[in-house]
Design a protein around this nucleic acid. Structure first.
Lengths: 155, 155
DNA sequence: CAAAAAGTGTAGCTATTGCTACATTTAACA
DNA sequence: TGTTAAATGTAGCAATAGCTACACTTTTTG
C-alpha cells in the first residue's frame, strides 16, 4: 500500500456510485470502438455502391488510407457479422441488415454535421470532427440535436 | 478486377481530392484513439491526486472498470511517454507535462458537456457522451463551442 | 511481531487493427 | 490470344489493450 497518504486516504468515503457510473461509461466508450470501424466501412461501401455501382476492396482501402490487405480483412469481418456479402474477386455488397445500418449511420452523420455547423464550426472542421464524434452520440443526444435544429430552423 | 461493372466504372473520374481528404480524416481519427486512452488516464490520475492526495493503480483500475494489471500496464506507458512518474509501490504522479495535459483535457471535457447541455441533452447522457466525444473535437470546434456558449449566456 | 490482507508488479494469453510480402485471379491490351 | 498489369486474397509480424494467474511488497491487525 501507499505509505505517503497513510490509512486515511484509503477510506475515501463511500463513493461507490460515482465509480460504478464512470466504469460503466468507460467500458461502453471502449467497446464502442470496434463497432465504429464496421460502421465506417458499411457507410463507405454503401456510398461506393450508390455512386459507382460497385464497391471494391481497393477503393475502400484508398478512401480510408489503409492498405488493401487491411481493408479486405475488415470486409471479411463484415461478412462474418452478416453485414456484407460477395464472392471472391467479385466485389462487396451489403446485406439488408448492412443497408439498414448504413442508412442509420448516414442519418446520424448528417445530424452531427448539421449541429456542428449550427454551432458555428467551420465546414471543414465540422466534417472532420463528425467522423470521430458520430460514434459516441447516444440516442438521447440525437433526439436533442434534432429538436435543437428544428427549433432553430423555425426561428 | 470486377467484371460486373466493366471498364467504365474503373475510371470514376478524378475524385482524388475527396479521397485524400477522407483518408486524412480517417487516419487522424484512428490514430487519435491511442491518445484518447492516455488522456483519460491523465485526467483521472489528476483527479485522484487532487481529491485523495494520492493516485494508486488499484483506484484507477476500479474507476475505469478494468483489471489492475491493465491499469498498471497503461501507467507504465504513461511513464514511458513522460506524462507520469513514481517509484514502484509508491503511487503515480504527473510530470509537469502530464499536468498541462490534464488541465487541457479537463477544460475540453467541461466545454463539451456544457455544449451538450445547452443543446438540450439530458445531464446523464451529456456526461456519458462527452466521455467519447471529447477526444474527437478539434481546436476549431472548441473555439466555436466557447463562442456559442458565451453568446448564449449573454442572451 | 507475526500472520493475513491488500496492493503492486510480471508473465503470458487473446483479439483487434494496422502493416509488408507473396501468391493467385481477373481484366486490359498489344 | 497471350502477356502484362491490376486487383484480390493469404500469411505472418507488430503494437495496443484487455484478461487471468502467479509472485512479491507493504500495510494492517490479531
Amino acid at each position: 500500500m501507499l505509505p505517503t497518504a497513510k490509512k486515511k486516504a484509503a477510506q475515501v468515503a463511500v463513493k461507490l456510485p460515482a465509480e460504478l457510473t464512470q466504469a460503466r461509461r468507460f467500458g461502453k466508450t471502449r467497446s464502442a470502438q470496434s463497432g465504429a470501424l464496421l460502421e465506417d466501412y458499411v457507410e463507405l461501401i454503401d456510398d461506393l455502391l450508390t455512386t459507382n455501382g460497385e464497391a471494391r476492396p481497393t477503393d475502400v482501402a484508398r478512401r480510408f488510407g489503409v492498405s488493401h490487405a487491411t481493408a479486405i480483412k475488415t470486409i471479411v469481418r463484415l461478412k462474418r457479422e452478416g453485414l456484407a456479402t460477395g464472392r471472391p474477386y467479385r466485389g462487396v455488397f451489403l446485406t439488408p441488415e448492412g443497408q439498414k445500418l448504413a442508412a442509420r449511420v448516414r442519418a446520424r452523420h448528417r445530424l452531427v454535421v448539421d449541429v456542428l455547423l449550427a454551432l458555428g464550426v467551420p465546414a471543414e472542421a465540422a466534417e472532420a470532427d463528425a467522423e470521430g464524434i458520430e460514434h459516441h452520440v447516444s440516442e438521447a443526444s440525437l433526439r436533442a440535436f434534432a429538436q435543437f435544429l428544428a427549433s432553430r430552423g423555425q426561428s
